[in-house]
Amino acid sequence: METRARTLVKAVVWNAIGLGVMSLVGLAMTGSAAVGGAMAAINTGIGLTCYFVYERVWSRINWGRAHG
């Protein structure tokens, strides 16, 4: 089972990568760094929360794990 700290670090790192990508996509799509950045920040906040909960749920499910 993963610790909450490990899950949180994984979520933060993954979402930092996503923030950078979404900022560039937002900038490319809107032509505005402010709008692209706002879109990315909102998406990252939602994604971080969802990813953390998702990982915590799956850490408690034994299905598909190899033991031994």
Rank of each mutant, 00 (worst) to 15 (best):
G68W: 02
V57Y: 12
A28G: 11
C50G: 06
I42C: 05
I46T: 09
T7V: 14
M1S: 14
W63L: 13
L48Y: 10
I46Y: 05
W63Q: 07
V57E: 05
L8W: 14
I61S: 09
E2G: 05
I61R: 13
S23W: 06
G68Q: 02
E2Q: 15
I46R: 00
T3I: 10
G37P: 00
A5P: 06
M1E: 12
I46N: 01
S32I: 04
G47L: 11
R65I: 10
S32R: 03
C50E: 04
G45T: 04
A28H: 02
N43G: 11
R56N: 11
Y51L: 14
Y51T: 14
H67K: 10
G45I: 03
Y51H: 08
A28K: 07
W14K: 03
N62S: 13
G20S: 02
V12L: 12
W63A: 07
A41D: 05
N15S: 09
S59I: 07
H67S: 08
C50A: 13
L27G: 12
V35A: 06
N62M: 10
E55P: 00
L19G: 01
I42G: 13
G37Y: 02
M1C: 11
G18C: 10
L27R: 07
M1T: 14
T3W: 05
V13C: 06
T30F: 06
G45E: 02
V57R: 08
Y54F: 15
E2H: 15
G45S: 03
S23A: 15
L27D: 10
N62Y: 10
A11R: 00
K10W: 08
G36M: 02
V53D: 04
L48V: 09
T3E: 09
L19Y: 10
G47E: 03
S59V: 13
M22R: 01
A38C: 01
W58F: 15
L19T: 07
R60P: 07
G31F: 07
L24I: 09
M1V: 13
H67Y: 08
K10T: 13
I61A: 07
G26Y: 00
L24T: 06
E55D: 14
V13N: 05
K10Q: 08
G45H: 05
Y51F: 12
L19W: 05
M1P: 15
A40L: 02
M39P: 00
V12K: 01
G26P: 05
V13E: 03
V35L: 15
R56C: 08
I46W: 05
L27A: 09
A41E: 03
S32Y: 02
Y51I: 11
M29T: 14
S59W: 04
E2C: 10
M29D: 09
G31Y: 06
R4H: 14
L19P: 01
G26M: 01
G37V: 03
A11W: 01
E2S: 15
H67W: 12
V9S: 06
G18P: 06
T7G: 08
I61M: 09
M22F: 13
E55K: 07
Y54N: 14
I17T: 12
